[in-house]
Design a protein around this nucleic acid. Structure first.
Lengths: 350, 350
DNA sequence: CTGAAAGCGCTTACAG
DNA sequence: CTGAAAGCGCTTACAG
């Protein structure tokens, strides 16, 4: 319970404007909100005085009289250490914010350690009327959040697909096609031993990628290699790479599920004196500044993550305005990421 | 104005609890908030029913009756592109959140392009009672935010020092000493031509570092070299490095003001076939996963940024509880970052 | 076109 | 120990 701050002018209320202008509070409210019921002359006076007093609506009062909070929640359940380094979320958040602030919404954000904590936060935020809706990221293959969100009746958008989870609108890019485009490219360069350092298999996008890789290998008659499972961290990316490169028949190309692991993998190759791309091609599934910072720069799937965030936020707004009829769900397929070829990939070593 | 969501159970109110238990709303409020005025038996019944109904306080109602919003604001005025990649802010934010969520506070975050936009957000958030206080980062040498915050009377903590700006409590680490420790270390390795790829000179910490470097050079009798000014971005870091390394008398060591630029600088050195650390030592002022991901790993000043955020948040809580008497200001000096020596530094080339 | 009044869900003196 | 009532700052039918 913070006390009133000592200095600073008291913040104006509608009452103050009403007194100065000499009309009722109701009239001021109508004038400020552009509703009919006041003369144009009164409206102008009200607006002028509001400006002069630097008035703004008390968000608590507004929320209490049914207007909603104009706050959107975003919870990310990943270890803070690895999160900090992943440019993806910062860009996504920027895009979300850009769309939200156009409409006077703010983003309330929280980083937590696991899914249980994430779910508990949704419950609390909803119970306490802290947000009007949430954006869910890192969709799971089997995702307990969906049932919770639906039972709460909380407006939400899920990032990750394909397929609509119950009534929750979903925005997704085609990870299958994306992975296929990488494998086709590497196969065209002559690679037949293509390894994959994947992410958390519980994440739907990770699973889709691994499945797509297997399908492509079969279609193209490539060697069967395991996809290594990691937690997306640099450590696990590095140790997976070490294991792969130490094998008798080492791969000629490795696909990493994110930019951080690709970077770590590149370092490991240098450590082991394996030249990239002469002896090993490296591809990252995520693009970011990181991938062009290295030497050689890393070939990566590129997408406009800022725009992605922007679209996701707009999708959420649509649901806020007219909640889904039961059974229906809005879906938004985003552009498939495009391969940005850089110096880390080349023809298979002869 | 979002409509009520279609599905989902209605959220319980104090009224609902009062009806079930058969007491007044006031009694329920006392019971829930642990205040005297209700019998222990009643309190237990109330708590049980609240639990059963999954009740939580409507934050708008609470805020409106004077309890504050339990929301802290954080605005970062840096280009989203470079921000995404800087682990510093994500770790700081995590630390802040850890301290805040212990007390039921949430963080409202916004990334903006410039200082003017940042200031406008503070005004709006305060006008609209959206936050109880804010945490300011990237302190400027001449910082217009200080006057704005003071005139609003908004509780705040400034990250960056030294010295207290007006009445705003300040948390800071000693950048002067930190820079000195780097230069001493490099000088001990025999380096005499030490260059510096600095950040935005308007930022107080950047300015302090540059001054400390000049002082150390003079004290140690090192060669005078300019500190290059950048915007902290990888591009400017890379081009500054190229310029430095192309000079007739190139430096034998370069100090980079953040990890992203150090990474970019390392890539440039590789591009130019300048071996690190044999021909060039590289030091980063920021430590993060990035610096250990490279090959060679980068020597860097290391600090516990998570803990930093935690302390900053606690400092803000203190001000929320008892606002500063005019003139007084709380200050918190944080541990000076410690040099983490890695493979990117070595003896001066002979 | 305008005013007076009730209501949103809490908290908190004030009576009993 | 408990209840009835006022108040926080808005919005919104309801009368005039």
């Amino acid at each position: 319970m913070p006390k009133k701050s000592s200095s600073g002018a008291p913040r104006a209320r509608i009452e103050d404007i009403a007194q100065r202008v000499g009309v009722s509070k109701g009239a001021v409210s109508f004038a400020l909100n552009g509703k009919p019921g006041v003369s144009e002359a009164t409206r102008q006076r009200v607006l002028a005085v509001a400006e002069e007093l630097d008035w703004g609506p008390n968000s608590a009062a507004r929320a209490l009289s049914g207007a909603g909070t104009s706050v959107i929640g975003l919870v990310i359940a990943r270890p803070a250490k690895t999160l900090g380094i992943e440019p993806f979320f910062a860009e996504l958040t920027s895009g979300i914010q850009a769309a939200l602030s156009e409409r006077g919404f703010a983003v309330q954000m929280q980083i937590v350690e696991n899914l249980e904590a994430e779910i508990e936060i949704y419950r609390r935020w909803w119970r306490e009327h802290r947000v009007d809706g949430v954006i869910l990221v890192d969709r799971r293959d089997v995702d307990p959040r969906i049932e919770v969100i639906n039972s709460l009746g909380m407006p939400a958008v899920m990032v990750g697909g394909p397929g609509a989870p119950g009534e929750i609108p979903t925005a997704w890019a085609d990870d299958w096609e994306a992975m296929t485009s990488i494998v086709d490219y590497l196969a065209a360069l002559g690679h037949r031993r293509i390894a994959h350092v994947g992410g958390v298999p519980e994440f739907l996008h990770s699973k889709r990628r691994t499945e797509a890789l297997d399908a492509a290998r079969q279609r193209l008659g490539l060697d069967e290699l395991l996809s290594v499972v990691t937690d997306f961290s640099d450590q696990q990316g590095a140790s997976a790479t070490r294991r792969l490169l130490a094998a008798a028949q080492r791969p000629t190309a490795i696909i990493f599920d994110n930019d951080v692991m690709a970077l770590a993998g590149l370092s490991v190759a240098m450590e082991m004196n394996i030249s990239v791309p002469a002896e090993l091609s490296v591809v990252s599934f995520d693009d970011s500044l990181l991938t062009s910072l290295t030497h050689p720069a890393i070939t990566a799937l590129s997408r406009d993550t800022f725009d992605f965030g922007h679209r996701v936020a707009r999708l959420l707004f649509e649901s806020l305005q007219e909640p889904m009829p039961a059974g229906a769900a809005r879906n938004l397929q985003l552009p498939t990421p495009v391969l940005q070829v850089r110096a880390s990939t080349g023809a298979v070593p002869r």
